[in-house]
Design a protein around this nucleic acid. Sequence first.
DNA 1: GTCTATAGGTTGATAGAC
DNA 2: GTCTATCAACCTATAGAC
Lengths: 204, 204
Amino acid sequence: MSTTEEPAKRRGRPPSGGREAILSAALMILREQGIANLTSREIAARAGVSDASVYYHFGDRAGLLQAVFAQGMKPLQFMAGMDLAALEPAEVVSTALIALEQFFDDVLPILHAAQADPELRAALAEFIEANDLGPHKGVRLLGSYLRAQQQVGRVRADADADAVALMIIDAAFARSARKQMMLQGKEQLPSGEAVLREITRLLT
Amino acid sequence: MSTTEEPAKRRGRPPSGGREAILSAALMILREQGIANLTSREIAARAGVSDASVYYHFGDRAGLLQAVFAQGMKPLQFMAGMDLAALEPAEVVSTALIALEQFFDDVLPILHAAQADPELRAALAEFIEANDLGPHKGVRLLGSYLRAQQQVGRVRADADADAVALMIIDAAFARSARKQMMLQGKEQLPSGEAVLREITRLLT
DNA sequence: GTCTATAGGTTGATAGAC
DNA sequence: GTCTATCAACCTATAGAC
């Protein structure tokens, strides 16, 4: 969406901040308490407003959740502003794994919350598709980097760039999901470094 | 559990089937409607009983959900009874990917439902750990197969068997999750076969 | 825009008859 | 074990004053 340029005067926003406080509180509750506890009262209490205020700003619960989803799903900016060409493939993959895991840490609570109800799931899926936030975006980004490196000879030519990109994304996704779901257990799984080494072995 | 001969009289199980009907209905609702619609009334209606019956059998909602989770989390039996040693590694990996994706298709709705509330999440995580259903089990199974193949020389010796096993599991996990969350979109992602080819390339 | 107050509906849970 | 009937609690949403 359009990034709001704010030179000195704001146009239509008396900055009472109520709306943003509500969104921020809702996102907080969603992330740490789950959607089952995301009620208008809880949100209002944590935002320091009355719960009628929630309905004033968002109409109904569906409108509120839509806004919360939109607020929480934004940052897929993923290695933005990095000079990828200057880095070793292994470094890029390592960076990508870390950035992707962080991205999923932020976003998975919202994805999970939407699974509680088919209408929410459909609404979120539609939002993701409309805003080009789906997994194919990561595949395209990482995959085209890998293809470029193939043409320069820094990544072996017989690798399927998009498939490797998807495997990287999936590894980060699963790591983040296990963390969130408290599924690591005591027995430890292979480290991120071990996975990184295997991916690197695919590329060289 | 002494199974003595019971000619005409059964000991502790009048098989009215109410309890199982409730569990089955609850699991059905959970999988197709999400936990937001998993109410005692909905369950009772679909099971063909009164909703007081639900509380008779399970005490309260927490007890019901615990039983539903236990019922739905059972089958991690994963390539059971197959003679793995007789198969090519690529075939085993292909079989594993399919079996794992099916497993996650069954189990993910429950994992997702538990994320709606921290208490449910903790209860399910505890159940998974207590029953040895966590991801390390798959890693151990697939990893030890790959190690055995390394010793016979059918899988290259410098591969990290456990790391590759985890990547296989993560790929299946992510595929199943995208399907459930309706996140494939129109732009198609790399196929399962393409991912399989890359994994195979890691092993040979 | 924000509040108080409240209507109206749904849910978890219990009592008591059969 | 299963039912009907019911309650108290909670939630979404609205009305109306400031």
